[in-house]
Design a protein around this nucleic acid. Structure first.
Length: 194
DNA sequence: CATGGGATTGACT
DNA sequence: GTCAATCCCATGC
């Protein structure tokens, strides 16, 4: 993937990342769920401005923003939009494709659908941690994002687990995919087809 | 320097 | 359904 892909508007990148592969070492999976975050809305860490924590978000596109959530989990984002804009796509779920036994060992569970069906789960399965914060996703870093084939059908809904700007429909998932985290956006109840 | 709040998960009632 | 675990960092004294 090249830097221009991530330099585009974050909502567009969030849509186009669904179906792409994320690789870290021997473990890899296809992105089935994303969420967009932008400094113009209060749910985004970058909303407060440039700090030690957020400087990666305002940096050049195509880098990883990894942070610790609830003191326990590492969450993986892809920094988007031109340098100076604080925006990123949160990778919320993967469909495991390579290194599945390694993922099972790291996660301590067997079921394929439980390996990467959540933002904290997939970083544990891939072995991604805070040390990867700020590294390149373009092929010259430990985590690599690889292009997808045909665009999958998308389910769209509100973002999960936030208290501010919770109404924005900035969550995108591969429609009908069993590796998407709960709650699953459904075609029938308020979510849109794209 | 002390405090409080999470872009979550898994265990338990 | 409820709830604790646990730590980084922003904020306030």
């Amino acid at each position: 993937m090249d830097a221009e892909f991530f330099a585009r508007p974050v909502l567009q990148v969030a849509r186009d990342l669904v179906g792409c592969t994320v690789r870290h070492g021997a473990a890899a999976g296809v992105v089935v769920e994303t969420e967009a975050y932008h400094d113009s809305e209060p749910a985004c860490h970058a909303h407060i401005g440039l700090t030690a924590r957020t400087h990666v978000l305002f940096g050049p596109p195509g880098r990883a923003y990894v942070y610790r959530s609830y003191g326990i989990h590492a969450l993986l984002n892809a920094v988007c939009e031109p340098e100076g804009v604080g925006a990123a796509v949160l990778v919320r779920a993967l469909e495991p494709t390579e290194g599945i036994e390694l993922m099972r060992a790291r996660r301590g569970v067997e079921r394929l659908e439980e390996l990467c069906s959540g933002p904290g789960k997939l970083t544990q399965a891939l072995g991604v941690g805070l040390a990867d914060n700020g590294t390149s996703l373009l092929g010259d870093g430990p985590i690599v994002v690889e292009p997808r084939g045909p665009a999958p059908a998308l389910a769209v809904g509100p973002r999960v687990g936030i208290t501010k700007a919770a109404e924005l429909p900035w969550r995108f998932a591969a429609a009908g995919n069993r590796h998407v985290s709960q709650p699953r956006p459904r075609h029938a109840s308020g979510s849109l087809e794209a």
